[in-house]
Design a protein around this nucleic acid. Structure first.
Length: 592
RNA sequence: GGCCCCGUGGUGUAGUGGUUAACAUGCCUGCCUGUCACGCAGGAGAUCGUCGGUUCAAGUCCGAUCGGGGUCGCCA
């Protein structure tokens, strides 16, 4: 019955005269009494259908009953619109359908809001009725793009000889970073599975298993607080290869991006991508995912201020910290209020203050100028390359705080000053990440990437003496200041893996308890291997221009990780808890 | 866990502590054969998120709480 259907976007002047069957939803109805216009929407687009009593006969009253979002089957003739009635705003605006027959396949309640792209409704409303929101052309386009991207990925890796392999969703909990989502076991009282934060260990074991080239479009779960670009479950393009070095992996991933951007957006991507070491990225941009679409780089002035009378700067240097600055070109007219606002902004990144020098026409204006001799001031200005009309912003603190605070300030200023060129694709790799960092809270070293990342060969000896100086064979792909993905060459020898575990403060017993199966696997001829993982959702955000991860996920969760449509999470029946051997404290305390 | 913003008919907004909470849109009814954000006329629709406090009087002020968003911490 539905087989002769034609999609709306197939309709054009070439179809004039044909009798067609259309299926879709009523987007809008304009009832003129004796003549009714209906904008019919299907997945492909919108077409205007005209209902008149001449053609419809008794069926006309049926047409009068049409309302928004009714699902209809329409048979009618394609006609060219008369002169002056062409709608240039509609892809099918040169033609319309004169309905001969109408079948209402299903009625619809009035939707809570009009399903058009210019929605101005609270997101809560959209999420409660997500199945309606998805009907909007804008959302349809997102999921079309998302589908295209995953198809390109599958095609790309298939051609390169990869196998797509599924790894388990119920795995052993080994929180070495984010919190796990736990799943209670019914048959093992008191024991739990975890949902994977990533397929990391399994993909490595696939390499031990001789699969050589693996990829998966994998769902991952992390029980951490959410953000505009973070969901508790998200999708990752996960890749692992045997017998590879960094130089094998990066160019291949660049080619993947070339294909994705050309085939979905028609944009060309220039390869090879520039590379920055982590150190260089932090030094120059104050970020491990620098946005290099504009300048305003950070300048280290620690040596110039170490001996000056300004204690805040001198002490920072004396204590092993840094003093760095950025120069905002042409901003000398910035009102004091806005400068104060920027100081408040950097304070969210733990900077204790923001010093500034305004290079005004009438001379230097700065609350810190009095602490510097003229020579010192001139040296500063020269180092920074500041000119009349600029403002120099300084932060003094530890190297990390200074870099990150100024890195964020740099982005904020660029945003306010509109320095970021739209439509530019700035891809780059950040390499040579540190292997470890020190976690004050836990009083131990933790892996920056993950504990299976291989250290750089020449840094291996530093592991015992200066662990923070050990660099990793790790790399991140960055696009326009957003981390698209990252990966590393992995450790494939038990000895080195044990060394790393030990550096992370894991006793041999704990290592075996948590990762014994991996360590054992490494003893059975594990090939050198490495890989990478990309955040699919973020990539789709970039491709579709969304600033919010919820807009690229069909059924997303709110910031508090709840599903407003299905009302998850929810309490469960006592029987279920009993089966799972679970008693909740909340229940025990009588709180509902 | 911290900080910031938001919550008023279905939807989006307005609303000096003081009458019957306003406007737009949507919805319903009637009229209308060329609209495409159709038009015209009429109508229905709100316990102002919830609880408590201040006050003669609270949508408005205060506190708590719930929900949503942004962000810092966190996210190997």
């Amino acid at each position: 019955m539905f087989s002769e259907r034609i999609m709306n976007n197939q309709l054009g002047l070439d179809k004039v005269g044909q009798v067609v069957r259309l299926l879709g939803w009523v987007q809008r109805r304009r009832d003129h009494g004796g003549l009714i216009f209906v904008d019919l929407r299907d997945r492909s687009g919108i077409v205007q259908v005209v209902f008149g009593p001449e053609k419809m006969g008794e069926g006309f009253s049926n047409a009068e009953s049409l309302r928004s979002e009714f699902v209809v089957s329409i048979q009618g003739q394609v006609i060219a619109r008369p002169e002056g009635m062409i709608n240039p705003n509609l892809a099918t605006g040169t033609i319309e359908i004169v309905a001969g027959a109408l079948e209402i396949l299903n009625g619809a309640k009035t939707p809570p809001y009009y399903l058009v792209d210019q929605v101005e409704v609270d997101e809560t409303v959209r999420l409660k009725h997500r199945y309606l929101d998805l009907r909007r052309p804008e959302m349809q386009a997102v999921f079309k793009t998302r589908h295209q991207v995953t198809q390109i990925m599958r095609n790309f890796f298939d051609k390169q000889g990869f196998y797509e392999i599924e790894t388990p969703m119920l795995i052993k909990s080994s929180p070495e970073g984010a919190r796990d989502y736990l799943v209670p076991s019914r048959v093992h009282p008191g024991e739990f599975y975890a949902l994977p934060q990533s397929p990391q260990i399994y993909k490595q074991l696939l390499m031990v298993g001789g699969m050589e080239k693996y990829f998966q479009i994998a769902r991952c779960f992390r029980d951490e607080d959410l953000r505009a670009d973070r969901q508790p479950e998200f999708t990752q393009l996960d890749i692992e290869m045997s017998f590879v070095e960094v130089e094998d992996i990066l160019p291949m991933m660049e080619q993947l991006m070339v294909r994705i951007f050309s085939e979905t957006m028609g944009k060309s991507v220039v390869t090879p991508f520039p590379r920055l070491t982590y150190k260089e990225a932090m030094d120059r941009f104050g970020s491990d995912k620098p946005d290099m679409r504009f300048g305003m780089e950070l300048t280290d002035v620690g040596d110039l201020v170490a001996k000056t009378g300004f204690k805040v700067f001198a002490n920072a240097v004396a204590n092993g910290g840094s003093v760095k600055c950025i120069c905002a070109k042409g901003c000398s007219g910035m009102p004091r209020r806005e400068i104060d606002d920027l100081a408040k902004y950097v304070s969210t990144y733990r900077a204790k203050g923001l010093a500034w020098i305004v290079m005004a026409e009438e001379g230097i204006k700065s609350p810190i100028a009095k602490f510097f001799t003229e020579e010192e001031m001139n040296a500063l200005i020269e180092r920074v390359g500041a000119e009349t009309g600029d403002i120099i912003f300084f932060v003094a603190d530890t190297y990390l705080v200074v870099s990150e605070a100024l890195g964020h300030l740099r982005l904020e200023l660029a945003k306010r000053l509109s320095l970021i060129p739209e439509d530019t694709l700035n891809f780059l790799w950040v390499t040579e990440f540190p292997l470890l960092e020190y976690d004050e809270e836990q009083q131990r070293y933790i892996a920056i990437h993950h504990p299976f990342t291989a250290p750089m060969d020449e840094d291996l000896l530093l592991l015992e003496t200066e662990p923070l100086k050990v660099r990793a064979k790790a790399y991140d792909m960055v696009l326009n200041g957003i981390e698209l993905g990252g990966g590393s060459i992995r450790i494939h020898r038990r000895g080195i893996q044990e060394q790393i575990f030990s550096a992370l403060g894991l006793s041999p017993e704990e290592s075996v308890d948590k990762f014994g199966y991996l360590l054992e696997a490494f003893e059975y001829g594990t090939p050198p291997h490495g890989g990478v993982a990309f955040g699919l959702d973020r990539l789709i955000m970039l491709l579709t221009g969304k600033d919010n991860i919820r807009d690229v996920i069909a059924f997303p969760k709110t910031q508090s990780a709840s599903d407003l449509m299905a009302h998850a999470p929810s309490p469960v029946a006592d029987k279920q808890l009993k089966d799972l051997h679970i008693v909740t404290k909340i229940e025990a305390a009588g709180i509902k």
